[in-house]
Structures are given as C-alpha cells and as structure tokens.
C-alpha cells in the first residue's frame, strides 16, 4: 500500500515537473520579456513528435522510426521547436504585441491539423506508440522505474532551472526586463529590442519542446488529443498562479495546479456517473478559467511574484 503510494507520488511528480519545465520556458517568454504565446500546445507537440520520430524503432506503415538514442531525440526536440519559434518570431515580433498571440494561436491549430492528418508521418489520430522510455529495463518494478525516472526528471528540471536563473540574473535577463518595462529607454542604450525578444521567444519555445519530448518518453505514447488548446491553458494557469517572472513560482504553480487538476479529476471520476464524465471534465476547465481570470484581476503577481531588483550589487549593499 505504502509502496503503491510512493509509486504514484513519483509518477505524479514526474508529470508535474515536466509541466514545470514547460512553465519555465513560458516564463522566459512571458515573465521576463512580456511575450504572450498562445501556442504552447503547438511547441510542446513539435518537441514530442520530433523526438518520437527519431527514437522509435522503424515501422513499415509510417515514415521513420530512426531508432536513435533518447538523448538525441530530446536535443533535436528542443532544436526543432526553437526553429519553429524563430520562423514565427521573425515574422511577428516586429509587429504589435497581439499579433504574436494570434499567430502562435494559429500555429498551434495548424500543428494540431498536421499531426492529425499527416498519417504517414505522425500516425494520425492513433498517434505514435512504443516510444522508448528511459530506464525501460526497470519496467517490471514500477516503484524503481518511477523513482529512477523521477530522479532523472528532477535532475533535468534542476539543470534547466539553474541555467535559466543564471541567464535571467545575468546581463541578458536584465536587458529583457528593461525592454519589457521601457522599450525606448532600452533602445537608447543601444539594445536591439527585436533581437532580444526573438532570442527569448526561441529559447522559451525550445525549452517547451524539450519538455514535450520528456513527457512523451515518460508516457511512451503520444496522440494529437494530448496537444489541444487545453494544455496551453493549463500551463498558463500554472505560471500565472505560481507567479510569472519567478522561476520558483513557475515550478510551484506547475505542481500545485497539476495536483488540483489530478485531485478534482479523480474526485469527479468517483462521484460523477460515467455518462456525465465528459461534462464534469468541462466543468474542471470552467473553474480553471475563472481562477485564471480572477488571479489576473485580484493578484496579478501570483503566489510568488517577481522579485524586483535592479542589480545584485544594489541589493547586497
């Protein structure tokens, strides 16, 4: 019993932390730079499908299955998601801010169409199965398997967190925040706002694609319905509730919202009769939507808001 609980706890945390990494990516875009990306689902999907295509064993009815090592899949996932972001970013970041929102919304829909209809590449509605899982040798021991994966995901989350913290608290992050607060002032100091925005957008999307690949490999199976706009919305709720602009807030929000989501989901599953399950799931989204809007009005900082500091030197003094 207690072992089952630990197994479930580890499984829960792996999923929550993979969302946490997506949140960290979104935090670079929104929290630091003020870029509104409505296509989170799309970039996560690009990462998941890229890695799945590269690492699954060769199959007859579908293009690819290149049987490459997992780590190559993960790095390529980040690279391809970043590339897609660069394409979108170059076109829209020079225009008004809402256009990025509209275009990323569009790319998420387009990617959904492609994964659903390009059956020879993506498996269509049936998705891609048999994605190699890390530590697959341990699969007979669910406890060990989940704990091994948890330590791997913890390590990766820690690594991404540390790297982003270093970037954000370094000169690069200061320029991003300067542009976000006052573009004209930043430009007068010779900072090219467009280039920095593009960098932040590409980096954030690459992190999202990377997280998408991790998720895909942990579950071992992906399908288009995993990448609907609901996931974009969940990730946004996580970041806003946790506190945008704060990487610890992003991780806290991810764990908290995922816990709420899982608990309410399980509770509704127990209480609500089977024929009303779809309705109950819709109600879950209603509550998150109201919660997100309420946080924006009442406490825009979220739980752990951004720590305003101009420079490490000034604080230390």
């Amino acid at each position: 019993m207690i072992l089952d609980l630990i197994t479930y706890g580890a499984f829960f945390l792996v999923t929550a932390l993979s969302y946490g990494i997506i949140c960290l990516g979104l935090n670079v875009q929104w929290g630091q730079t003020g870029l509104f990306n409505v296509g989170v689902a799309g970039f996560v999907a690009i990462g998941a499908y890229t890695s799945a295509l590269l690492t699954t064993p060769d199959v007859v009815e579908r293009f690819g299955g290149f049987d490459l090592p997992i780590w190559i899949g993960w790095i390529s996932a980040a690279f391809v998601s970043g590339l897609a972001a660069a394409f979108i970013g170059v076109i829209t970041l020079r225009l008004r801010a809402d256009y990025l929102a509209i275009t990323t919304f569009g790319i998420a829909i387009t990617i959904q169409l492609v994964v659903l209809n390009a059956i020879t590449i993506t498996g269509g509605p049936f998705g891609i199965g048999f994605i190699p899982r890390p530590f697959s040798g341990l699969q007979e021991h669910p406890l060990l398997f989940n704990l091994a994966n948890l330590s791997l995901v913890c390590g990766i989350t820690g690594g991404v967190y540390y790297a982003l913290e270093r970037l954000i608290h370094g000169p690069w992050g200061r320029v991003l925040r300067a542009i976000r607060e006052d573009e004209a002032a930043a430009a007068s100091l010779g900072k090219n706002a467009k280039v920095f925005r593009l960098q932040a957008f590409v980096l954030g999307s690459a992190v999202m694609g990377f997280a998408g690949a991790i998720q895909a490999h942990f579950i071992g199976f992906i399908a288009p319905e995993n990448y609907l706009s609901a996931i974009t919305f969940q990730v946004w709720a996580m970041l806003i509730i946790g506190g945008s602009g704060n990487n610890r807030g992003a991780l806290l929000g991810a764990i908290l919202v995922w816990a709420l989501w899982s608990i309410t989901g399980a509770a509704l599953g127990l209480i609500v009769p089977a024929e009303y399950q779809a309705r109950a799931a819709a109600l879950q989204i209603v509550f998150i939507g109201i919660g997100l809007a309420a946080i924006l009005v009442v406490r825009p900082r979220g739980l752990l808001g951004e720590v305003t500091k101009v420079s490490r030197v000034l604080i230390d003094r």
Binding site: F36, D98, A101, Q284, V286, G289, A293, L296, P300
Partner: peptide
C-alpha cells in the same frame, strides 16, 4: 478592471481565460 492598469496583453490573456471558461460552460 484590467483596462485601468493599461496593459493590453494582460487583457488578451484574460480574454483567453474567459473564452476557455465560457466554451467549457457551453460544453457542460
């Protein structure tokens, strides 16, 4: 409530949250 704060992109985000809630309410 958000208009007075003058950040247009926060309003876009709020509309995104509202759309999700309103749509799911219809589905419910």
């Amino acid at each position: 409530k958000l208009r007075s704060k003058g950040n247009a992109i926060v309003m876009v985000m709020a509309s995104f949250g509202a759309s999700m809630a309103l749509r799911s309410l219809l589905e419910f």
